[in-house]
Simulated scan of single mutants.
Amino acid sequence: MKSVTYAITAALALAGATAAPSSAQNAMNAQPVELYACTFKEGKGFGDLENANKDLKKWASKHSRGYNAWMITPQFRAGEEAFDVGFIGAYANAEQFGSQMDKWVNESGDVSQAYVDALDCSHGLMASYTVLEPEGGPGGGVVWFARCSLDDDSSMADAMAGHTTVSDMMVEMEAPGASWMFAPSLGGGDAEFDYYHVAAWPSYPALGKAFEAYMNGGGIARANAAMDDVSHCSSPNLYDAVNIVAAP
């Protein structure tokens, strides 16, 4: 993909179950998340990625520790430049990111070449801050991304507090989704927003339950009050996510 480095932001240790309460989770500690936003080269398609993803999983099992990766495809989207497929890689910490990127650049050989042959991609790095952590191991599901801009005199810490209030509300309403804030880091260009708010669910029924609670159960009014004079976010775009590498 040519110019959409952050169109599919995420890093998603996507929930395999329900999300855990957030009260003790919100220290502003950044974790690195890499993003690829890609379009297929002429004559290439998803069939060309099947073997590439299998080879990636095998390679990662030998060369990567604590690394999770997902393939993302658009489902509900407006206001973003089009792309065909994305890949998200989540690292436990920055030192792990550095050592594993070194291996990927210098040792991946035919494994990385398979993606180069099929795709044109942008590559960016985000600083991920966990608002509401999912329970269980990495899995697939659905994830949304909303572009958010801080209001005057507001900070990322203020936004974290606001999103935490909203996430705790959704836990109370028994319709939580895991949640993060992603700030552009490397390769972001001149982003016209401060961060992405990212939310993920393990399935469409789980998303539907959250939608009902938020839109028709009084959640939206409480959320607007929590975020008033803190930040404002665009309508989210929704993507399907398939886990292709699970941390050993």
Rank of each mutant, 00 (worst) to 15 (best):
Q113V: 03
G137A: 07
E174S: 12
Y129N: 04
E107D: 15
F193C: 12
A183V: 15
H123R: 13
R147H: 04
A175E: 13
S179Y: 05
V166F: 10
S155C: 09
N68K: 11
Q100P: 01
E133G: 08
E192I: 01
G136D: 02
F145Y: 02
M181A: 12
P138H: 06
F97V: 00
E80G: 11
A127D: 10
D84I: 06
D120L: 03
M156P: 00
S99Y: 09
M156E: 05
V171N: 14
V171S: 07
M170D: 14
V143I: 06
L150G: 09
T73L: 03
G189D: 07
I88D: 11
C148L: 09
S128R: 13
S149R: 12
F182N: 02
A69Y: 00
Y129K: 02
M126P: 00
A90R: 14
P176H: 14
H163R: 08
A114P: 02
P134R: 02
M169R: 07
C121R: 02
M173S: 15
E95R: 03
C121G: 03
G109A: 14
W70N: 12
P74D: 08
G137E: 03
H163E: 10
E135T: 13
V111I: 14
I88W: 05
M71H: 01
Q96G: 05
T73P: 02
A161Y: 05
P134T: 02
G98P: 00
S154D: 05
D168I: 05
